[in-house]
Simulated scan of single mutants.
Amino acid sequence: MSPERSPVWLAMMLALVLAEVAWRMHKGHGYDARTALTTLGIVAGNIPFAALNALLLGGLFTAAWTIAPIRLPLDDWRTWAAGFLAVEFAYYWFHRASHRVRWLWASHSVHHSATQMTLLSSLRLGWTNLFSAGWIFYVPLVFAGFDPRLVFGLLALNLRYQFFLHTEAVGRLGPMEWIFNTPAHHRLHHASNSAYIDRNYGGVLIVFDRLFGTLAIERPDEPIRYGLAHREATANPIRLALREWSYIARDAAVARGPRQLARALFGAP
């Protein structure tokens, strides 16, 4: 489900990252080189997992498409409009569950581990997304008649859009904030402050956060702190990618009975 890594897209990302570095240094915010290197380590480790995900999930979604009871026409703009809303809806619930279900959080926590909010930090993606099975949220879209190519294409656009949200260089954007996810909304989503945790789950849109009561706005008296609320910071990419799974395994091993085991695996992080 990763967006295509085209040369033009990579060149634009690099140019924006460098521009943001210059902006942060000029503003006196600093740029943590160690954090950046950790992110690059996570990216490098994620490459083989992303390839495996594409292969296996492509086959799985194609198989689901072969037995889908209906098939909406891919050449109809209404299919794409409806598909956009459907993918945004599924992404909202996938993202919300990734913060509320420990099994999903084990992968998603990697994305929240950076202690600076930068464009580069958007590339911190877990290596175990296939195993944590967040893709289950998108399978119903295929059975609803949406071609897997549409689902994957819109998810790729969703992720590309979110690259631009991971920055402190853009302030509030006025009326746009009512409908779209913006850097201001997403900065708060990455906060580790207890007042802000588990808010603003949207991808491109923020409307589902408004509808389901998970929208929050940064308060002047509560500056955002980034990083993980109850985990120490580490620069080790492998530890970041796997440590939540080790904690789950530890708690599952000492669980007494099915209820404790279920809580260890699927309870709140």
Rank of each mutant, 00 (worst) to 15 (best):
V139H: 04
L150D: 01
R263A: 15
S194E: 15
N236A: 11
A252Q: 05
L40R: 06
H190R: 00
N46I: 00
A22P: 06
V87G: 03
N193D: 03
A262V: 13
R263W: 13
G202N: 04
S121G: 05
A268I: 11
L85H: 03
H111M: 00
E244V: 04
V170K: 05
T66R: 15
L240N: 07
T182W: 02
L173F: 09
P183R: 02
W127Q: 04
E222F: 09
W245R: 06
V254D: 07
G134C: 07
T182P: 05
L157K: 06
I136Q: 06
R199H: 15
E222H: 12
F164R: 06
T115Y: 13
W103M: 02
A264E: 01
R250F: 11
H230W: 11
A106M: 04
R210Y: 03
G202E: 03
R5G: 10
A114D: 14
L56G: 02
A252I: 04
F208Y: 10
R263Y: 10
A191D: 01
A15D: 05
L10C: 06
G203C: 02
P237L: 05
R24F: 11
G174Y: 01
V43F: 12
Q260E: 15
T167I: 06
T62Q: 14
R256E: 13
R231A: 13
I179L: 08
L154K: 00
N236F: 08
Y138F: 11
R71H: 15
L74V: 14
L165I: 07
T66W: 11
R250T: 12
F89K: 00
S192A: 11
P140L: 03
P148M: 11
R187L: 04
W23I: 09
A22L: 08
R71I: 04
H29Y: 15
V142S: 05
P140G: 08
G83H: 06
F146L: 12
D251G: 02
T66S: 13
S194H: 10
A36T: 10
M13E: 14
I197K: 09
L261P: 01
S107H: 15
I67L: 14
W23Y: 10
T62C: 13
R219S: 11
R239V: 12
A63V: 10
A33P: 04
